[in-house]
C-alpha cells in the first residue's frame, strides 16, 4: 500500500504531528515501505479466524466502589507546564 504526501499529512494531523515540508517525501517513502512489509499479512486467508485482542481468555476483575485517592493537586501540578488557580492552562478552547 503506497501512500502519497497528502495521505501522510492527513494521518499526521489525526495524530497531531507536524511534518516539516522538506521531510515529507522521506517520511512518506519510509511509511510506505513499512506498509509494504505489513501487506505480507494479506498473503493468507484469515476469514475463518477470530481476532485475538489479548493473549489469554482472562476476564476483567472489578474493584469495590471506594474512594482511595486523596487530593494531591499541589504535588501533581509541580510537574505541569502551566497552571493557574489549580487549573491546567491551554490556549483558548473555542467551541
Amino acid at each position: 500500500m503506497a501512500l502519497d504526501n497528502t495521505d501522510v499529512e492527513k494521518i499526521a494531523h489525526l495524530a497531531r504531528l507536524q511534518i516539516k515540508q522538506p521531510d515529507i517525501d522521506e517520511v512518506t517513502s519510509r511509511i510506505s515501505n513499512i506498509l509494504t512489509m505489513i501487506d505480507q499479512m494479506q498473503s493468507i486467508d484469515t476469514s475463518a479466524v477470530t481476532p485475538m485482542a489479548h493473549p489469554f481468555d482472562a476476564t476483567q476483575r472489578l474493584r469495590p466502589d471506594q474512594v482511595t485517592e486523596t487530593n494531591q493537586r499541589d504535588r501533581l501540578q509541580q510537574i505541569a507546564p502551566a497552571t493557574e488557580n489549580g487549573l491546567y492552562l491551554v490556549p483558548k478552547v473555542i467551541e
Binding site: 502551566a82 493557574e84 488557580n85 487549573l87 491546567y88 492552562l89 491551554v90 490556549p91 483558548k92 478552547v93
Partner: peptide, 13 residues
C-alpha cells in the same frame, strides 16, 4: 474547560 480569561488561555479542570 473553563473559558474565563487567564491571559487568553482556557483553564482545564
Amino acid at each position: 474547560s473553563l473559558h474565563e480569561d487567564f491571559q487568553g488561555m482556557s483553564g482545564i479542570d
